[in-house]
Design a protein around this nucleic acid. Structure first.
Length: 263
DNA sequence: CTAAAATCCTGGTGGC
DNA sequence: TGCCACCAGGATTTTA
């Protein structure tokens, strides 16, 4: 469930302790977690220095010495922890990066959806991704919708259209903009799209301030879940008008909205 | 072309 | 209390 704000929170937490460190060894226990191959990781990663750590969409991007990039996608249940090499390993540790300071970066992922990629050509991982919602200009955002069809929410979830927005923040953004998630995008007026971009930036920004949302048993984020206005609030009163929040399935995703405030 | 469904996964939940 | 079917969901792949 980690979306843009949660990944951003993880990146900010890890940047200081990781940048400048050198990877000394790699352990990995689940082959599907590493599409570019565990042996490749173990061969190519040792002695590489972490030059920088950033976020691209929902990916963590490690810039390494020697022209390599390490990408990690947390998907549903992934999390990253820095712990001492002597600390007991966790049963859900899938890939562990040993560091040159007696510590290690542990990629913990109960549901095994998360992925680790080691590449020299970063476009192999991020080549098809859409623009970043926090920095996109209004004109570019409006242009994204030219010639697009379908319902609004599935488009917002499409990472080739725009990155970083997942099920929670799509619902919250639609509510904040007062737009029904089922609206056909061709019918959206310029003024509505302007409102939508403002809503997206506001919601994502606020979620980052709260260090993201804490989800179920796995992901330890921040406190934004206490500020949800529609997500996971089926039948509860709308914070704006008291009308019960509705839950439908849209694009095979649970979708929450206020039938009165959103049209 | 679009859209929906299946796929990968496991801990939590609700029903009995 | 115990068992079990079912659900959640990001992104990709398959089917309609």
């Amino acid at each position: 469930m980690p979306e843009l704000p949660e990944v951003e929170t993880v990146v900010r937490r890890l940047r200081r302790p990781l940048v400048g460190r050198t990877i000394t060894a790699v352990r990995a226990t689940w082959a599907n977690s590493v599409p570019t191959g565990i042996p490749h990781l173990q061969r190519a990663l040792p002695k590489r220095k972490i030059l920088s750590l950033n976020r691209r969409g929902k990916y963590l991007k490690f810039d390494l010495s020697g022209g390599y990039y390490l990408f990690i996608h947390l998907k549903m249940s992934g999390d990253l922890e820095i712990e001492g090499q002597s600390e007991a390993p966790h049963p859900h540790d899938r890939t562990v990066f040993q560091l040159d300071n007696k510590k290690e970066l542990r990629f913990r992922d109960p549901r095994k959806f998360g992925r680790v990629y080691l590449v020299k050509d970063e476009s192999r991982v991020t080549g098809k991704l859409g623009p970043e919602p926090l920095t996109i200009e209004e004109d570019s955002f409006l242009n994204l919708f030219k010639g697009k069809k379908g319902r609004l929410k599935p488009l917002l979830l499409n990472q080739e259209f725009i990155v970083g927005i997942g099920n929670i923040y799509a619902d919250e953004s639609c509510f904040e903009a007062g737009i029904h998630p089922k609206r056909k995008v061709q019918t959206l007026k310029k003024e509505e799209l302007q409102r939508l971009l403002k809503a997206i930036k506001q919601i994502l920004g606020k979620a980052i301030k709260f260090n993201g949302s804490t989800f179920d048993f796995v992901y330890r984020g921040g406190g934004f879940q206490n500020h949800f206005k529609v997500y996971d609030r089926k039948d509860e009163p709308c914070k704006r008008c008291k009308t019960p929040i509705k839950r439908i399935i849209l694009g095979s995703r649970s979708t929450h909205f206020c039938p009165k405030c959103q049209s």
